[in-house]
């Protein structure tokens, strides 16, 4: 399979530095959660619901704010139906990564002795799942009004031979070494860097640079949606 043709096109017709179709909605489930969002990156589709900050069930001794993440990968999300238990190793790893990322990005000192619970449902998968999950969580947290230092926007990038490619889909992800970054706001600081296979050190920098540029673009798109939603609410309130 030719992941990147000599004419500079990828399997799905994108060029090297193009993101997949990115669509997001905020406040999708206003009645069932404190904050909610829906994100599509290509064919990867995720719903995120936030509950909290609220009182933890068992009142723990700690003064800290607890962030609890649940990831539910639906059976129909991949092209072959497959049941995954909660203890699925890959899912567990995702959960840990996400918890760590957002521990640092939420102003947890503002919410002592509380629990913030995030429920993520993966409706469809086509590569770049971690990035999409991060983006959905950022939007849902903003919707819930939980204080964060800045947006966390994430996207994957990979290395095919010597070519760097942005936002890998499932086919590309399987055949290339790739990484996912989560960028804080418009800075070049990383809240998340995930590299699960090998990548030559001398190429790492260019892959990182491309992923950061891609994340900034995603942040812009998310920001547009947040502002659109904000204006909507403002208008509705004024009408009342």
């Amino acid at each position: 399979m030719e992941l990147y043709s000599p004419e500079g096109l990828r399997l799905d017709g994108r060029r090297w530095n193009e993101l997949r179709r990115f669509e997001c909605h905020i406040n999708t489930h206003p009645n069932s959660a404190d904050g909610s969002s829906y994100v599509e990156q290509g064919n990867t589709k995720v719903v995120c619901l936030v509950q909290g900050p609220m009182e933890p069930k068992q009142s723990s001794q700690s003064n800290e704010c607890t962030i609890e993440v649940n990831v539910n990968v639906t059976n129909f999300s991949t092209f072959e139906r497959r049941k995954r238990g909660k203890s699925d190793r890959q899912v567990q790893e995702l959960v840990t990564t996400l918890e760590r990322t957002f521990d640092q990005s939420i102003m947890t000192h503002l919410y002592p002795r509380t629990l913030i619970k995030l429920d993520l449902t993966v409706l469809a998968q086509d590569g770049g799942l971690l990035g999409t999950l991060v983006n959905a969580m950022t939007l849902a947290l903003i919707d819930a009004g939980i204080a964060m230092y800045d947006y966390i926007s994430a996207v994957s990038a990979g290395l095919q031979d010597t070519n760097v490619l942005l936002d890998l889909n499932n086919l590309e992800e399987k055949d290339m070494s790739g990484l996912t970054v989560g960028v804080i706001g418009t800075s070049e600081k990383l809240a998340l860097l995930m590299l699960e296979n090998k990548m030559p050190v001398d190429r790492l920098e260019s892959v990182l640079a491309l992923a950061i540029v891609g994340s900034h673009r995603i942040r812009e798109l998310m920001d547009q949606e947040v502002r659109r939603h904000g204006n909507d609410r403002l208008r509705k309130r004024n009408e009342m």
């Binding site: 500079g8 799905d12 994108r14 090297w16 290509g42 086509d126 760097v164």
Partner: peptide, 27 residues
């Protein structure tokens, strides 16, 4: 699978002047 369609694929002909404006660099 997604399939993206674009308008920046040139005809590669030296006789054509329009396509020169739409080319984009590769990786």
């Amino acid at each position: 699978r997604e399939h993206y369609l674009r308008d920046d694929i040139p005809c590669y002909s030296l006789a054509c002047s329009e396509c020169l404006d739409i080319v984009k660099p590769d990786a």
